[in-house]
Design a protein around this nucleic acid. Structure first.
Length: 443
DNA sequence: TTGACTCAACATCCTTTGCTACAA
DNA sequence: TTGTAGGTTTCCATGTTGAGTCA
């Protein structure tokens, strides 16, 4: 006979199970709560009777209406998730209806459910979908709201800070934009929830730091995967990607070369290389206590800025805005400064993290209605924001990540009627070219 | 309730396009 | 030709967000 209990994110057992540790404080064996299903399975296989007191005060599942009709691939995704023990990550491109798959899962399982999302915006979007599609009463936790219900939407931050208290209240947890989960704090949060049923949703599972290998442990393996290329022209818009190359001005080139050579000289002098991310991190560490290293790193920052924001890009943009003078366009930049400069130069509205919530809402609304035809944004629209359809995206600068690239592309693919076009303007022969090469999704 | 503020957490950050560099 | 990769860690910058505090 074994007794299972929950205590502040931990699973407490009075009999040893593989992976559990003895706690002198609790006078029992403990492991993180997410091992609940595994531990139970172990004792069952050993033929041990289980007294299970883990889940307590779980909010009752509300009454719902289930009239959801899934598309073939959505059905496939859900089926393969169920077959893998109701655990795992579903990868679908933006606009392919990940939410619908999750709502169907909620409707099928009918267990107390927690939906974890990265932003308040997404929290509202999910809550609305649950109300409208499942006709269910929905709880929300985050952004000053605190209402628990049998289906509750919560931010990652709140799920983290309230994990001890909420960890044994939900049998089913859905992690939206699950690529956030492997970070240090959030992965700990995932471990503190006992939920045996887990679903991760994302369009871009891979992380730059390689921590996506943590999915099988935290949520389950990738159980279904489709990319934009599988759906283009069918459920989402078909699209073209165009790369336009420009050259820096002489002045920019002189400055760029000077900065790069400063960096190179420093590296040679110290017998360092900059070939991997580790090399780069070494330089960063060095820069925290070494003046020369700091200057070298600043030279690197500055040179990158020159290449990414070159004047020739702005000139090219001017041409493109003329060429596509009747289309709805979003311009993406890397720096906020360039975003503001473009806004002034072309008299177009700008959105960055400095833009107030109200103003952002107003700009997006006017863009939706067609009052504004062109808007410029820094990296704010890369995720989780419900950006109205545009059919042309012009990338002036960004990170070297496929994630950002795909998210930005996703902004153009919501409607399937029009052909979308993503134009990338790249400064030839510079680090900007490198970044573009790295993110290029057809590698 | 709001708005302005601060703080903490998270993410990116690498290769002069192209194939590592070196010791045993 | 072949095999193997120096921290023992807490961060130069900038961008972005959620939460908490206080008026």
């Amino acid at each position: 006979m074994v007794t299972l209990r929950y205590f502040k994110g931990l699973l407490v057992l009075d009999v040893y199970a593989p992976g559990a540790k003895w706690s002198d404080e609790l006078k029992a064996y403990i492991t993180y709560a997410y091992k609940y299903a595994e531990v139970k399975k172990y004792f069952r296989s050993e033929g041990v009777d289980i007294q299970d007191y883990v889940f307590d005060n779980t909010p009752p599942f509300p009454s719902i209406v289930d009239e959801i009709k899934l598309r073939d691939y959505q059905f496939e995704a859900l089926r393969s998730w169920i077959l893998r023990g109701k655990r795992g990550v579903i990868v679908l491109p933006t606009g392919a209806g990940k939410t619908i798959v999750a709502l169907k899962a909620i409707a099928s399982l009918r267990e107390s459910t927690l939906v974890v999302v990265p932003t308040i915006d997404l929290m509202h979007q999910w809550a609305n979908s649950i109300r409208e599609i499942l006709k269910a009463d929905v709880g929300e936790i985050g952004g000053g709201v605190d209402k628990v219900s049998g289906i509750t939407v919560i931010t990652y931050d709140s799920a983290y800070t309230r994990a001890e208290e909420l960890g044994n209240k939900f049998f089913f947890v859905i992690f939206d934009e699950v690529h956030h989960l492997p970070s240090e704090g959030y992965s700990l949060m995932a471990k503190m929830y006992a939920a045996p049923h887990r679903m991760g949703l994302t369009a871009t599972p891979e992380r730059e730091d390689g921590k996506h290998i943590m999915y099988p442990d935290l949520v389950g393996p990738i159980v279904y995967r489709k990319g934009v290329e599988d759906f283009a022209g069918k459920y989402i818009a078909s699209f073209d990607i165009k790369k336009v190359y420009v050259k820096m001005t002489e002045e920019e080139e002189r400055k760029y070369k000077e900065l790069r050579s400063n960096l190179k000289k420093f590296l040679e002098k110290r017998n360092l290389t900059l070939r991997s991310l580790d090399d780069f991190n070494r330089l960063v560490r060095l820069a925290s206590k070494d003046k020369e290293a700091r200057e070298a790193l600043l030279a690197w920052h500055e040179s990158l800025k020159i290449a990414v924001n070159s004047k020739a890009k702005v000139d090219k943009l001017k041409e493109l805005l003329k060429e596509f003078k009747d289309e709805k366009i979003i311009i993406f930049t890397r720096d906020t400064q360039l975003a503001y400069d473009l806004s002034k130069l072309f008299l177009i509205p700008v959105v960055t993290y400095k833009t107030s919530k109200d103003e952002r809402k107003e700009i997006l609304e006017k863009f939706r209605k067609g009052v504004y035809r062109v808007i410029v944004a820094s990296t704010v629209f890369d995720e989780g924001v419900d950006v109205p359809d545009a059919n042309i995206g012009i990338v002036l600068g960004g990170y070297g990540t496929k994630r950002q690239y795909l998210q930005r592309l996703g902004r153009l693919l919501r409607g399937k009627d029009k052909n979308a076009l993503l134009i990338e303007i790249i400064t030839k022969g510079t680090a900007d070219y490198k970044l573009s090469k790295r993110r290029s999704y057809i590698s």
